[in-house]
Amino acid sequence: MNTVPLTHILFVSTALFFIGMYGLFTRRNLITMLMAIELMLNSVNINFVAFNKYLYPDKLNGVFFTLFIITIAAAEAAVAIAIIINLYRNHHSIDVEDTEDLKY
């Protein structure tokens, strides 16, 4: 089990984080940007669990952080989707380039 070093798990989660960041940079649709953010949050969760498992196996703090992050991510996704639906109702578009009511 411990044959896979911790750094490899960290590399995987870093790669996942930057994949999410790429999505956040290139997409201009609010829902796909939200998906990219979910990927980034997941990569952070992997980090927490891996650190907990490899460095502090007698504690549970990483697991708790992961649980709270999952909870807050769910709340965040729900609020974001409510905002997206409201935006679509007012603008008939959820492209970030079209939302310019706060611009001036």
Partner: peptide, 13 residues
């Protein structure tokens, strides 16, 4: 939470 909740929410939206 994710597969059963968030993704379903995203698909509905």
């Amino acid at each position: 939470v994710y597969v059963g909740g968030v993704v379903v929410l995203i698909i509905f939206s």
